[in-house]
């Protein structure tokens, strides 16, 4: 019991306070940003309203500059739970579309990242020549050219899931490569020497020593990679070609000034990101336990 109240005071209370502060600031911001338009509206309609009524009106505009939190929450609730999952307006449907290309891109990116890392660790020439280019590859703002890649691939009839997943792959292979190179090199000299005395070849060393040693590194970089995959999938949906997905929802909202829709889509994307990262974290803990780490032991 003592432990629990301690936990509340040290973790939940501060977070809660900050969240409430953000919400309060959001409401104030909604009032300040929407007030002038509402005043304009009232003057034209010859309406005089009490301050309380006026305040309520600034929070109930259909296309506010900054929607109030409860407007966003209401939109989010309606579009998530009250619509049919197959409906074009259901956020679950859009989230599913984004999720599927995120997952495919993440899987391909992780596989590619691991393969490159294994190559780099085993071939000196690759290590010397590839590593600088891998870092340079991330200074290409591929996210910025993602819409173009989609359009070009669409021109040769590669459409649907794959082009979007390719963007996610490009973004997610980098953290995995960097993390895995570190992880595959993490075994101590002593361990490497020991396995040499067992007359293990490169393949056996990889399977029995290097790969198991790299698991914590792999999961740490997979957390970064899955977040990057999601961002890639969302941005890849921005071109008009994509009819569904969180990104297309954002773009449609921007075109028709449906601010509430934009915010709802943004929050849906955030929830998705949090879920995915948590999922990878859970998988990390499970694998950790399966590999014999003590339950209390913190994953590296």
């Amino acid at each position: 019991m003592v432990m629990r109240s301690d936990h509340f005071r040290h973790h939940a209370l501060p977070v809660l306070t900050i969240v409430i502060a953000i919400l309060a600031a959001w409401y104030v911001g909604a009032y300040v940003l929407n007030a002038s338009f509402q005043r304009d509206l009232d003057r034209r309609g010859n309406v005089t309203s009490t301050p309380i009524e006026f305040l309520a009106k600034t929070m109930a505009q259909p296309k506010p500059i900054l929607p109030a939190p409860h407007q966003v929450a209401q939109n989010l609730f309606e579009n998530t739970f009250l619509r049919k999952v197959t409906s074009n307006r259901s956020l679950l449907y859009h989230a599913w579309v984004t999720l599927s290309s995120t997952a495919l891109g993440f899987a391909m990116g992780t596989a590619l990242g691991i393969a490159i890392a294994i190559g780099i660790v085993h071939v000196t020439t690759l290590d010397r020549s590839l590593m600088p280019w891998i870092i340079a590859s991330q200074t290409v703002p591929v996210l910025a050219i993602a819409p173009m890649v989609i359009v070009v691939l669409g021109a040769i009839n590669i459409t649907g899931l794959l082009p979007k997943a390719l963007i996610s792959t490009y973004l997610s292979f980098f953290p995995v490569t960097v993390g895995m190179v570190k992880g595959l090199r993490s075994p101590d000299r002593i361990h490497l020497d020991l396995i040499r005395t067992y007359h293990a070849g490169a393949l056996q060393t990889l399977l029995k020593l290097r790969l198991p040693a790299s698991i914590p590194f792999l999961f740490a970089s997979m957390k970064v990679a899955i977040a990057a995959s999601l961002v890639g999938a969302i941005v890849a949906e921005l071109p008009t070609g994509a009819a569904a997905g969180i990104g297309s929802k954002l773009l449609a909202g921007a075109y028709y000034s449906q601010t509430i829709d934009i915010w709802a889509a943004l929050i849906a994307g955030s929830v998705l990101a949090a879920l995915l990262v948590t999922l990878v974290g859970l998988a990390a803990r499970m694998v950790d336990r399966m590999m014999g780490a003590k339950p209390e032991g913190k994953p590296a």
């Binding site: 941005v235 954002l250 943004l266």
Partner: peptide, 11 residues
């Protein structure tokens, strides 16, 4: 820092 913050661009 894990969220797709780039989505605030239209806003």
């Amino acid at each position: 820092s894990a969220l797709p913050i780039i989505g605030v661009a239209p806003i």
